[in-house]
């Protein structure tokens, strides 16, 4: 093959190639329209776990492995409903095999385990334990950038500095009334801000929508149908 042609068709790594797709309803929140390898996202607010899972779901479906570190309470069924592939989900609990690790070592240990997790997984969801030294936070984020993984934090990011912080507010559940129905969907107002987001971005989401996935919510018409959501919904259970 001609050398000039070879150079022309050789793959080049552009910033856009370092982005990983997210579900369409969430794309408008992120400045690059997707997750960027090597960056840190923080999810805060009442819907933080659902938000974190739905952010990584699309990348997981494309073949990336997801590690959840120090989240022993994670509901696998909810994760699957949000689109996370259970076959590429691994839970890691930071602790010594013999259970010995005092409270003061917890942050160090978490950092050590997170470092190892970042080496093997493209997507990592975790929460930052209290008392993590600031130097450890910086070291971890440097490692994250060289490894090209995506780190999603649930709750307070502590000494780590997130590139984007997604906060969920204005949460409203649909489906339950005074003793009838069942939880069906949740409307969440989400705002993304941070140093990579020049102007805060907002989105209205169904998180989860009916069925458990994430969907964009149309802005509500104001006061035209004041009773539209008050109709009791009868539903069978099972």
């Amino acid at each position: 093959m001609d050398l000039a042609l070879a150079a022309a068709v050789a793959p080049t790594t552009m910033a856009a190639e370092r982005t990983v797709a997210v579900a369409p309803p969430l794309a408008s929140l992120l400045p690059e329209g997707g997750l960027v390898r090597g960056r840190t996202l923080a999810c805060e607010g009442l819907a933080a776990p659902s938000l974190a899972l739905s952010l990584v779901a699309e990348a997981g479906r494309a073949g990336a492995w997801l590690a959840v570190l120090d989240l022993p309470w994670l509901g696998v069924e909810a994760a699957v409903e949000l689109g996370v592939p259970a076959e590429r989900l691994v839970r890691v609990d930071a602790g010594r095999p013999d259970g010995s690790a005092g409270n003061d070592q917890r942050g160090e240990l978490w950092g050590e385990v997170l470092g190892a997790v970042l080496d093997g997984f493209d997507l990592v969801v975790t929460r930052v334990p209290p008392r993590v030294p600031a130097t450890l936070g910086r070291r971890l984020q440097t490692r994250l950038r060289t490894r090209g993984a995506v780190l999603v934090l649930i709750g307070d990011p502590g000494p780590l500095s997130p590139d984007v912080t997604v906060t969920s507010a204005e949460v409203r559940w649909e489906g339950v009334g005074g003793g009838h129905g069942h939880l069906r969907s949740r409307r969440v107002g989400v705002e993304a801000a941070g140093r990579r987001v020049p102007r805060p971005r907002r989105a209205e989401l169904w998180l989860p929508a009916v069925g458990g996935a994430v969907a964009a919510a149309v802005p509500e018409p104001t006061v035209l149908h004041p009773r539209s959501t008050a109709d009791p919904v009868l539903d069978t259970v099972g």
């Binding site: 073949g63 990336a64 492995w65 839970r91 609990d93 602790g95 010594r96 050590e112 997790v117 093997g120």
Partner: peptide, 27 residues
């Protein structure tokens, strides 16, 4: 298995030696 699978399998082995087999779990 893809390259990502291989990498994850190796990471699981390494993490298991770090935190014990009850610390690296799958659903």
């Amino acid at each position: 298995s893809s390259a990502a699978d291989e990498r994850a399998v190796r990471a699981v082995a390494r993490l298991t030696s770090l935190v014990g087999d009850q610390g690296v779990l799958v659903p």
